[in-house]
Design a protein around this nucleic acid. Structure first.
Lengths: 196, 196
DNA sequence: CCCCTCGGTCAACAGACGTAGACTGAGGGA
DNA sequence: TCCCTCAGTCTACGTCTGTTGACCGAGGGG
């Protein structure tokens, strides 16, 4: 019957929690089965292998497309980031944590992020668009990891408070017009020994 | 003689490289010993345990104090970040990668980062200083991880190019006067629809 | 000569892991 | 009644890991 589906769901839920909390290597199939009130052999039977279980548990629907004018892009990015900062991303958290010890997960996350970045960069003005979209990605990565994984000080505020600080940065990254003919009143970053 | 010291150094170098590349769990003592042209038993004899070996390999001298006026703080942060973005941080990279699967490493890194953040926050104006220093930490984390660990698109530029984009963000985070009575000079050439 | 230290090697142990496969027991058509 | 399916359990195998302890060869006092 659908008894099987209920068991699979319990296993997936347990897997997400444990993968997200302890990473790929430290999470054993036995532990997942125990938390799901089940058995390691059954997990193998249902999901085939630990890798496949992880793939299903960490599968994340991926954000919708980010497109439009720079202002719209900034808006979409802000909304997406706010969601990511909301409580417990579940599958995404597992993928992020595993990323650093389980190469396949890293490739998947990187592919998703770079795909979105290229898409954004193509719509930004300026010839350093890719670089700026990379910094946007880095800021996103840092905020999500810093909040959920590292629990940095000061990042435990509400998503709205966080975005009140981070939002303007994204706006600036998106709307700044590439070449710095008119530098934004920046007082020279460090010394400038022409790097090349 | 100092033959022992040379062997210890070779082991530590190999350990840093492997811990940084594969993380804590996936790096075996045997692999470290092999790369160092040595033996697993000897590694145990010299360092006591895998944990202690990691502690020595991932020990990072920690940045100097960040203090002064907001402009000086921005300058110091920029310099520190530029260094972190330069090639192969070695020990720091190992600590960062291990952070997500080896809790002790996570605690150490978090302690170092939050310590520095609090120090910075205490010198920033505004009542959301801690939050802003948290975002600075997130940006730093995201840039270093995005560049060295995830290899995000667009972050493979030179540290100087990266800082040309990220520097102004740090400046803004440091100098913005907390309460947004005076909105930051982020010129928005387009409409500025207050999102909220 | 013996003996002792010390850098280094080797073989083995105990535990944990992913995985495979045999087993149980209920349920429901023929 | 028999028999088949299917969710779930239990045991075992092979491998890999950190760690231990016995062993070996060189070298320099006594």
């Amino acid at each position: 019957m659908e008894q099987r589906q209920r068991t699979e769901t319990r296993i997936l839920t347990a897997a997400r929690r444990l993968f997200g909390e302890h990473g790929y290597d430290r999470t054993t199939i036995r532990a997942i089965a125990f938390e799901a009130g089940s058995d390691a052999g059954l997990v193998m039977r249902y999901f085939g292998s630990k890798e496949k279980l992880f793939a299903q548990a960490a599968a994340t629907p991926a954000d919708g497309p980010i497109e439009g004018s720079p202002e719209q892009i900034a808006e979409l990015l802000t909304v997406a980031l706010t969601e990511k900062l909301a409580d417990e991303p579940g599958a995404a958290l597992a993928a992020l944590r595993a990323m650093f010890s389980y190469p396949e997960a890293a490739d998947e996350v990187r592919a998703a992020m770079t795909g979105q970045q290229r898409q954004i960069a193509a719509q930004l003005p300026g010839d350093d668009a890719l670089l700026r979209s990379g910094v946007i990605g880095a800021l996103t990565l840092g905020l999500v990891i810093g909040r959920h994984l590292v629990r940095l000080d000061g990042l435990d505020a509400s998503p709205e408070e966080l975005m009140a600080v981070a939002g303007p940065l994204i706006e600036e990254l998106v709307t700044t017009n590439g070449r710095r003919d008119t530098p934004p009143r920046s007082r020279r970053p460090v010394s400038g020994p022409t790097p090349d």
